[in-house]
Measured scan of single mutants.
Amino acid sequence: VTLFVALYDYEAITEDDLSFHKGEKFQILNSSEGDWWEARSLTTGETGYIPSNYVAPVD
């Protein structure tokens, strides 16, 4: 499982989006939707859509 880490803070715009803070880690559930990925936060356990350009793979 490839994990991703937030590079910036993000505040949800719609109820389907997931708010997060810089440094938060995610498991990507679906990355086939283009620039918005469905993800689960490993910090909160919540799922929602995140902007793919706000995250990077964890080394």
Score class of each variant (00 low, 15 high):
Thr2His: 11
Ala39Gly: 06
Tyr49Ser: 06
Glu15Gly: 14
Glu11Arg: 09
Lys25Met: 15
Ile13Phe: 09
Thr43Glu: 15
Gly48Cys: 01
Tyr10Pro: 00
Gly48Arg: 02
Lys25Asn: 07
Ile50Lys: 00
Asp16Asn: 15
His21Pro: 06
Asn53Glu: 09
Asp16Gly: 13
Leu18Met: 13
Lys22Ala: 12
Asp9Leu: 03
Val5Ile: 12
Phe20Lys: 00
Asp35Thr: 12
Tyr8Trp: 11
Asp9Thr: 06
Ser52Pro: 08
Val5Cys: 05
Leu3Trp: 11
Tyr8Met: 09
Phe4Asp: 00
Thr2Pro: 14
Ser32Leu: 12
Phe4Leu: 04
His21Thr: 12
Ile13Gly: 11
Val1Trp: 14
Asp35Gln: 11
Thr44Pro: 01
Ile13Met: 13
Asn30Lys: 09
Ser31Gly: 10
Ser32His: 11
Thr44Arg: 04
Lys25Ile: 15
Ala6Ile: 01
Ala12Leu: 01
Thr43Pro: 02
Ile50Asp: 00
Gly45Tyr: 07
Glu24Asn: 05
Ser52Thr: 07
Phe26Thr: 00
Tyr49Leu: 15
Leu42His: 05
Phe26Gly: 00
Pro51Val: 02
Thr44Asp: 04
Val5Asn: 02
Ser19Thr: 09
Asp35Trp: 12
Ser52His: 08
Asp17Asn: 14
Ser19Ile: 02
Val55Gly: 01
Lys25Leu: 14
Tyr49Trp: 12
Asp17Cys: 09
Thr44Met: 02
Ser31Tyr: 13
Thr44Gly: 03
Leu3Cys: 06
Glu11Met: 14
Gly48His: 03
Gln27Lys: 08
Thr44Cys: 03
Ala39Leu: 01
Phe4Tyr: 14
Val1Arg: 06
Tyr54Gly: 06
Trp36Arg: 14
Trp37Asn: 01
His21Tyr: 13
Thr2Arg: 10
Val58Thr: 07
Ser32Met: 12
Ser52Gly: 07
Lys25Tyr: 11
His21Trp: 08
Phe26Glu: 00
Tyr10Asn: 03
Pro51Arg: 09
Thr43Met: 11
Gln27Gly: 03
Leu3Ala: 06
Trp36Asn: 06
Arg40Ala: 07
Glu38Gly: 04
Phe4Asn: 01
Ala12His: 06
Leu3Thr: 09
Ser41Gly: 03
Ala39His: 01
Thr43Phe: 09
Ser41Glu: 03
Gly23Glu: 04
Gly34Met: 11
Tyr49Phe: 10
Leu7His: 03
Asn53Thr: 12
Ala12Cys: 04
Thr47Val: 15
Leu29Met: 09
Pro57Glu: 09
Thr43Asp: 14
Asp59Ile: 11
Leu29Asn: 05
Glu38Ile: 14
Thr44Ser: 09
Gly23Ala: 03
Lys22Gly: 04
Arg40Asn: 05
Trp36Lys: 12
Tyr54Ser: 11
Pro57Cys: 05
Thr14Tyr: 15
Val58Leu: 13
Ala6Ser: 05
His21Gln: 13
Ala39Met: 04
Asn53Phe: 09
Ile13Tyr: 09
Glu33Val: 12
Glu15Pro: 12
Tyr49Asn: 09
Thr47Gln: 11
Tyr10Ala: 02
Ser32Lys: 12
Leu3Met: 10
Asn53Ser: 14
Thr43Tyr: 09
Leu18His: 02
Trp36Ser: 07
Gly45Asp: 06
Phe26Arg: 00
Ile50Trp: 01
Phe20Asp: 00
Pro51Lys: 07
Gly48Tyr: 02
Glu38Pro: 05
Tyr54Gln: 05
Ser31Ile: 13
Val1Cys: 09
Gln27Thr: 11
Phe26Ile: 04
Trp37Arg: 02
Thr44Gln: 03
Gly34Pro: 15
Leu29Phe: 07
Val1Tyr: 15
Glu24Leu: 01
Glu33Gln: 14
Phe26Ala: 00
Tyr8Gln: 09
Phe4Met: 10
Phe4Cys: 07
Ala12Thr: 04
Asp9Gln: 05
Leu42Lys: 04
Ala56Val: 13
Val1Gln: 12
Glu15Ser: 14
Tyr8Ala: 10
Ile28Leu: 06
Ile50Pro: 00
Ala56Ser: 10
Gly48Pro: 00
Ala39Trp: 01
Ser31Phe: 15
Arg40Val: 14
Asn30Gly: 10
Leu29Ile: 09
Asp9Met: 04
Leu42Gly: 03
Lys25Thr: 13
Asp16Gln: 15
Thr2Glu: 12
